[in-house]
Design a protein around this nucleic acid. Structure first.
Lengths: 125, 125
DNA sequence: GTCTTCCTCAACCACTTGGTTGAACGAGGA
DNA sequence: TCCTCGTTCAACCAAGTGGTTGAGGAAGAC
């Protein structure tokens, strides 16, 4: 299984059924049976989906009599939004700078649109 | 392959190598060979990763002589942030309301913390 | 005690995925 | 022309995933 938390969150939300489960849990807590009702898959399959969401830290299950109400943990969303915003802002700033360069350029030179600084990061694997 | 765009974007970013590629493309465009250099996988594997990112709409490849510079398309991030923010806000508002309820409650009654409104959405599959 | 309900665990299956190797393609350069 | 470079396509493989069925476990209800 994917080790890093960010991969787990992205991977968990890559499934439309799991996203729908998250959407419904945002309205209120629910049990596995209630969550499984609208779909035409077995309860076991939904239980598996919930396990994926739980491993990603997106939901938590508590014991309440024989029911296991599922609860949405919205804080993990921050992990994603932080990552996304970081690179979105970086990219947008780059485009803004590029626009400035293009604006200050004479019309007869065709911009090659290449940056040849070597990538600063090392590969993760 | 996953049909809906949101699943494709989430799935594309669920891989740490692909996230690293996106991070490096935020700095500037690069060719497949340049992108593959830091990793100890083959160029073909990186080309496959780029195809996944391209299918998700996150990058675009243009033809420039025999090189194929890869370009980051940051607009697709909006798709994710919109989805995330929607349910995060919904969940947070629910917690706020729950806090109000708890605050206005007498101390001797134990809150059961259950919402029994049936989920309004129908399942997608 | 015995039921019934709700849920999870364990196998199993079809399909996808991330990686490999090898071959082929397109565009310049000799 | 032929060669080389950068890239992609094709086939293959091990591992992961989403689904199934069947069995088992935990807590009320009888």
């Amino acid at each position: 299984m994917a080790a890093d938390p960010l991969s787990r969150v992205f991977s968990a939300l890559a499934d439309p059924t799991r996203r729908d489960i998250v959407a419904r849990l945002a309205v209120g807590d629910a049990t596995v049976g209630e969550l499984a009702a609208p779909y035409d898959v077995t309860v076991q399959a939904v239980s598996k989906h919930l396990r994926v969401l739980e491993d990603a830290g997106l939901v938590s299950r508590s014991r309440e009599a024989q029911r296991r109400p599922v609860h949405l943990e919205a804080e993990v969303f921050d992990l994603m939004t932080k990552w996304i915003e970081r690179y979105r802002r970086q990219a947008e700033e780059r485009y803004r700078r590029l626009d400035d360069v293009l604006r200050s350029m004479p019309d007869d030179v065709s911009p090659t649109h290449r940056t040849d600084d070597p990538p600063p990061q090392g590969g993760p694997p």
